[in-house]
């Protein structure tokens, strides 16, 4: 990036910051919806069978950890855009 003119450097920085912000923001939509679904259904199940709280909570945390994977990917990619490139 050293050989570019001032305007080109500014545009490159603009693209970097915009890209990182958009990556994290859009990437967080899917995991949010997914984890909300998981939580809602876990609440339903607990309301129906209150004695199963322990099992349902551990399974819910497991499913949450899998559902948030794409969010973690976008977090990593935005870190890479900001810090590595």
């Amino acid at each position: 990036m050293e050989n570019l003119s001032d305007l080109a450097q500014g545009l490159a920085l603009l693209g970097k910051y915009l890209g990182a912000g958009l990556c994290m923001g859009i990437g967080a939509i899917g995991p949010g919806i997914g984890e909300g679904n998981i939580g809602a259904h876990a609440m339903d199940a607990i309301a129906r069978q209150p004695e199963m709280v322990g099992t349902i909570t551990t399974r819910m945390l497991l499913a949450d950890a899998i559902a948030e994977t794409t969010g973690i990917y976008s977090l990593l990619i935005s870190f890479m855009i900001l810090l590595v490139v």
């Binding site: 950890a65 899998i66 994977t69 973690i72 990917y73 977090l75 990593l76 870190f79 810090l83």
Partner: peptide, 17 residues
């Protein structure tokens, strides 16, 4: 790839965060 990146992203991303 998805199996390994899930763990890597959580731990390395958590560390940077």
């Amino acid at each position: 790839i998805s199996h390994s990146l899930r763990l890597f992203g959580n731990i390395a991303g958590g560390a940077i965060l």
